[in-house]
Amino acid sequence: MFSLWLTARFSKPGSLLYVLDHPNARSLHTAPTPRMGGVAILAAVYLAGIAAVLRRPDLAALWSLGIAGAVLACVAYVDDRRPLPASFRALVHLAVAGALAISGLYLTEIDLPGFDLRVAGWLGVTVTIGLMAWMINLYNFMDGMDGFAGGMTVSGFATLSALGWLAGHPDFALVSAVIAASAVGFLVCNFPPARIFMGDVGSSTLGLFAAGFVVWGVRERMFPLWCAILIFSPFIVDATVTLVRRLVRGERIWEPHRTHYYQRLVRAGWGHRRTVLLQYAFMLGCSVSAVVGVHASEGMQWAIIVGWTLIYGTYFLGVNRLEARVGSPA
């Protein structure tokens, strides 16, 4: 409720944090829209997080994530008010990810069904920094459609909460649930047609939290890494495939664009609401698959991975064919 109240306040003219996101050639929205919804989400998260830390001051991962998230949110807030150079933002992302990894929050193994690869300390730190920096950026990339990033936050962290609870880690489950609940309050005002966006404050920090909670859960053996990737795959797959396509085309990958598959689907005539509902179906399916798959047989786990690979491949082909039919640019 606190998140919903703050989000509604920030969406009204006259609010101290009433900052407008003006549409440009790369935007999907057509009217200036407030962009400080992320502050509302994080205010609710940190209020509950303080209570959790007071209850369990020995949770080092929570302390590390809280401090790193606050630093990143402050930089993102400045960027929301007055855009910072991309190179500076990238350095901050790497520095925050590096600090978390060096503090002890890094991967020690990379696992697939029936296959666990132990990684040396320095390699685990390097892989973790790359994962965290990528999640920070891809969350930002994918926050371009009404209801999308908010929905991914609700679905992703609610599923992490369920997996943490089933694995016997109530503190992890509780904080994950708080993040999901805070995103629900924001989503009420962000569902198409959106009255407010989360901005870089929300997308960057939630991306860091997503990566951090994934690493935390994998280290504590609550769930395997492949399950966590599956949970957030509606963001990870689209962003990664789009990045590869742009690299192959020789495009400047650091420049804003409208070539993510969800953006192309909106522009091809589906609109925000219909497209985001399709993405919600993906999120729900991935969440159920992860919860079922975490304790399933090796064969079933591989069937889930192959099945979702085929689903995403079919989705991408479908977007391509729709564009060819209606004449939308790729």
Rank of each mutant, 00 (worst) to 15 (best):
A324E: 13
Y280G: 04
R246H: 10
A183M: 04
H29G: 01
M145W: 00
S103K: 01
L91M: 14
S203P: 00
G124W: 03
G207C: 01
V291M: 13
L160G: 08
F10G: 04
Y312N: 06
T108K: 09
L105V: 14
T314N: 00
H295R: 15
I136C: 03
R89M: 03
V39L: 14
A290F: 09
G37R: 03
A43K: 00
V19Y: 11
G156C: 10
G168N: 11
A290M: 06
V45Y: 01
H257D: 07
L166A: 15
S87P: 00
F197S: 02
V53E: 06
L117W: 11
A181S: 14
G104V: 06
V288P: 02
V45C: 15
F213N: 07
L42K: 02
A228M: 11
S289M: 10
M142G: 09
D58T: 13
A51E: 04
M132N: 02
F197E: 02
F2T: 13
P256I: 02
A324C: 00
F88H: 10
F148C: 05
L117K: 01
F316R: 03
Y18Q: 04
H260P: 09
G202A: 05
P256M: 05
A44M: 04
L107D: 07
L322N: 04
K12L: 10
S27N: 05
T128G: 10
T126Q: 00
L310V: 15
Y18A: 03
M135H: 13
V306T: 14
F2S: 12
A228V: 08
A76V: 07
S161R: 08
V294M: 10
R258T: 09
D79I: 07
T7W: 00
V53D: 04
H272P: 01
F282H: 05
M135D: 00
A167H: 12
A194M: 04
Q301D: 08
A177Y: 04
G124M: 07
M222I: 12
A181E: 02
V214R: 00
H257P: 08
M1N: 10
R26F: 11
N190P: 04
S161M: 07
W270S: 14
L107Q: 09
I253T: 15
A268T: 06
V78I: 14
A303Q: 10
T242C: 13
C189A: 08
V45T: 12
D79F: 09
R221Y: 07
L138D: 01
Y106F: 15
L62E: 07
T309I: 12
F235W: 03
L247W: 09
V237Q: 00
L47D: 02
R56H: 15
T314E: 00
G285H: 06
V218Y: 06
